[in-house]
């Protein structure tokens, strides 16, 4: 039961991807397969897919319970039964007892949970979430991330989750698809995507990797191509063990860590070092080293 975040910059095609799965856009070519069945010709209301919309899209003229009971209602299930079902779903998302409220009376986080309950009541095979946490403040967002994750484990269906927040994508996923210009540029586990980005786009996007240009790669004895190098893998070493040396350009204090920028010729390399390390004066020469596998070769961007 995977949790698949699609992750890319705004405008890169993530939402279009969801709309293709849900049926609001039709592909100009190719096939939309959901669990190995082709759904190209099937309208949205007959796909085993439900969406949690970016701004929740709750019906303002229906109360919370009728919002959640919308799916069963259009399938022709009687009032009593669908209300009972809706109340059960509201319990699941911890909104029991709020069924008679109107959506306007709820907070952002509560609305999001109503949207979730409304989508899950249909027992979809796939649940699509379009930046569902974007409208929430940081604290609420972290709490909802936890809840979404545990909910996904409880109900056991595939979540396809669109976000442009890399922290969200990394912490919540079983698999990640990184999308750029409408293409999936890398697909894999969060660790794979984080440690071994395939292209410069992915490397630049996941956290704040150093992008090492070909000429600098040659200097450190690697192949003449672009590499990525995570700043936290770099450490200060003695001159004789240095992979590269440069001038200390700037230091930013981050609490437990410090972020150090080192100039090597025209290039610069960032390293994240423990804050306890004493640094020499600005402009002095320092020596950097990293484990052999830290330098990750990149493919050329398509």
């Amino acid at each position: 039961m995977p949790f698949l975040p699609c992750w890319g910059l705004p405008g890169s095609g993530k939402t279009t991807c969801l709309r293709l799965i849900s049926g609001f856009e039709r592909p100009t070519s190719g096939e939309i397969r959901i669990f190995d069945k082709v759904f190209n010709e099937v309208p949205p209301n007959r796909r085993p897919v439900n969406t949690v919309f970016q701004d929740y899209a709750l019906f303002p003229h229906l109360d919370v319970r009728d919002n959640v009971a919308y799916g069963p209602m259009v399938r022709g299930i009687g009032r009593q039964q669908r209300h009972a079902e809706a109340d059960r779903m509201l319990e699941l998302v911890k909104l029991g007892g709020l069924g008679r409220r109107s959506p306007a009376q709820l907070s952002g986080g509560q609305r999001q949970r109503v949207a979730l309950a409304r989508a899950l009541i249909n027992k979809p095979r796939v649940l699509l979430l379009d930046e569902p946490l974007g409208a929430l403040d940081l604290k609420l967002r972290e709490q909802m991330q936890e809840e979404l994750k545990s909910l996904q484990e409880t109900v056991g269906i595939t979540f396809v989750f669109v976000t442009h927040d890399q922290g969200e994508a990394l912490s919540m996923s079983d698999y990640i698809a990184v999308i750029n210009n409408g293409r999936v540029v890398q697909y894999g586990s969060p660790q794979q995507v984080y440690d071994l980005p395939r292209t410069r786009f992915v490397a630049g996007f996941v956290g704040s990797s150093n992008l090492v240009p070909p000429e600098l790669s040659e200097q450190v004895g690697a192949a003449s191509r672009w590499h990525s190098l995570r700043p936290e893998t770099i450490s200060l070493v003695a001159a004789e063990r240095a992979q590269i040396s440069g001038r200390l350009h700037s230091v930013r204090y981050l609490g437990s860590m410090q972020r150090v920028q080192v100039r090597v010729g025209v290039h610069s390399i960032d390293a994240v070092l423990p804050a306890s390390i004493q640094l020499p004066e600005h402009g002095s020469r320092i020596h950097l080293g990293w484990p052999g596998n830290a330098l990750n070769p990149l493919e050329d961007d398509a």
Binding site: N45, F53, A57, R118
Partner: peptide, 15 residues
């Protein structure tokens, strides 16, 4: 009438 409400209805199975 927001378009996404119409889409939400279709998405939830409404004809």
């Amino acid at each position: 009438v927001p378009t996404n409400l119409i889409e939400a209805s279709r998405d939830l199975g409404g004809t």
